[in-house]
Design a binder for these strands. Structure first.
Length: 461
RNA sequence: GGAGAGGUGUCCGAGUGGUUGAAGGAGCUAGUCUCGAAAACUAGUAGCGGGCUUGUCCUGCUCGUGAGUUCGAAUCUCACCCUCUCCGCCA
């Protein structure tokens, strides 16, 4: 959520931001609703102030008279009733006015709030302008020794590559047919070394972040209330993307939603809290199952492990002071972690600075990491495996996650998040890059301890 | 799932219709005292919002949430959410 005060002071910034992101918002309406809301509020509060004052001046007297009225003899009642009517006239008039104003406010406020919640965080000043992912800017790429994606796989390795679909089938790692039988399209069963490899990758990434990067490992809910989804900025824009469990309809207290990323659980932890500034930054990592409906992606990446409804992801978040330079430093540090993991797994990758048009509602700066997938497209393609976002105070403002700075001032914290590893998607480059001519797949060194020392996955296992 | 108890400020806790944003205590901050500390004493100690005359200014809201009764609600009514205890069931 943006700061409505900042919008009043400098609406241009938000209008330009939304336009750069390619998001259409009726800003004129927002301004009109905001003005209307404030003018109603002013009028309403003036009445309330009068009510409070009258309550102090005549309230007690009214109470006493009402008490007397009950006990009074018939002939004394007339006088009391006259005085009561006189005393009550002013408060009753105010009450009527307040009722009208409250109704007006109830008419305006929900629309004002709903619209405000859809205004996107403006992109950072140095994010390149662009309409969509085609205009993302490559920052750098890295290749392991002996493999250069700019040359054909065959030139690199001396044989034609198999796609990951072929590999997992031949090696018995994934059973798509039975996954679909049980749960429908985009579902799968991990099997044998497929499951072990999946778990190894996750465990390696989590341990790496905890042991080598000082992040606190957390286990968080993946079924959450709507407030968590709204607070983290996934709703309302991404409502269609989330599985929705309608508990209300079957008599439960409230509906729940399956989270599409561990970010929701990690950021929700401190919602509505005030963090002592000494405990910042918070550095959390989690491994969680992620659920995505993939609404609107029909027909896209339908085969294989690329786009699926359920997967697991090790996710890192940082909650830091409201300081742009600090948030940029953490962004770099988090990306460094990702690069260390990918390099240790010997996977070729590149970093892309996303342009304004490729940013979501909530981020002001995003860098995607793409791994080389030899079996993707005609002759291999880079495919997105990671995404690192800086959110400014957008998310913490929605979550009401604040800290008191050293001057005792309340501040909304800044938030960042970044994939450490997402599997099974990461298995695509992992299997395809490390495949051998005989159809086996070599296991990168860091994963072996998590696979009982296995160095090579072969069909027989 | 059944039965019961309860949700008040940073924390504990009082408060069952009237000036209560809220007694009392703890904690925290500052001061006095002290060579220093402790103790004691004194004072201070919420958040969010609106206004303009932007001020050591005025003002509204907040006692789980929402609606209602009332001139007036932390206090009464209704619905909901949450927590805890016991029983049942269970990975």
């Amino acid at each position: 959520m943006i700061d409505i005060k900042a919008f009043r002071e400098n609406p241009e910034r938000f209008i330009r931001g939304a336009s750069d992101k390619g998001i259409t918002i009726d800003f004129a309406r927002l301004r009109a609703l905001d003005d209307e809301r404030r003018s109603i509020l002013t009028a309403l509060e003036a009445r309330r102030a009068s009510q409070n004052q009258l309550g102090k001046e005549t309230g007690l007297r009214i109470g006493k008279l009402k008490g007397q009225l009950k006990a009074a003899a018939a002939e004394a009642r007339g006088a009391i009733e006259v005085e009561l009517a006189a005393l009550e006239a002013a408060p009753l008039k105010l009450k009527a006015e307040v009722t009208v104003l409250e109704a007006e406010l109830a008419n305006v406020e929900p629309a004002w709030h709903a619209l405000l919640m859809t205004v996107p965080q403006p992109p950072a000043h140095d994010v390149p302008k662009g309409a969509g992912s085609e205009q993302n800017v490559e920052i750098r790429r890295w290749n392991p020794a002996g493999f250069d994606p700019s040359r054909p796989f065959k030139t690199n390795r001396g044989f034609a590559p198999k796609s990951h679909q072929e590999l997992v089938k031949a090696l018995g790692l994934v059973d798509f047919e039975r996954g679909v039988k049980m749960s429908g399209t985009r579902h799968y069963v991990l099997s044998g070394m497929g499951m072990r490899l999946h778990q190894a990758v996750l465990r390696y990434a989590l341990d790496f972040m905890a042991d080598r990067r000082g992040f606190r490992p957390m286990g968080v809910p993946v079924i959450v209330r709507e407030e968590c989804m709204v607070g983290t900025g996934f709703f309302p824009a991404g409502r269609e993307q989330a599985y929705h469990i309608e508990e209300l309809r079957r008599g439960g207290g409230h509906d729940i939603f399956l989270t599409g990323t561990g970010e929701v659980g990690l950021m929700g932890i401190h919602a509505n809290e005030v963090i002592p500034h000494e405990s910042l930054p918070l550095k959390y990592v989690t491994s969680s199952t992620c659920f995505r409906r993939e609404a609107g992606a029909a027909g896209k990446d339908t085969a294989g492990l690329y786009r699926i409804h359920q997967f697991d992801k090790v996710e890192q978040v940082v909650v830091c002071r409201a300081d742009d330079a600090e948030s940029r430093r953490w962004h770099a540090t988090m990306l460094e972690s990702v690069e260390m993991v990918l390099q240790s797994l010997e996977l070729p990758y590149r970093l892309l600075q996303c342009c304004t048009g490729d940013l979501g509602v909530k981020n002001e700066d995003m860098i995607d990491v793409e791994c080389w997938m030899p079996g993707r497209g005609e002759n291999g393609e880079y495919g997105e495996t990671h995404s690192a976002s800086r959110l400014g105070d957008f998310q913490c403002r929605r979550l009401n996650l604040r800290y008191k700075d050293e001057h005792g001032k309340m501040q909304f914290a800044y938030a960042l998040n970044n994939t450490v590893i997402a599997s099974p998607r990461i298995l695509i480059p992992l299997l395809e890059i490390h495949q051998n001519e005989d159809g086996s797949v070599s296991v990168p060194e860091p994963l072996r301890t998590h696979l009982g020392g296995v160095e090579k996955i072969e069909a027989s296992r």
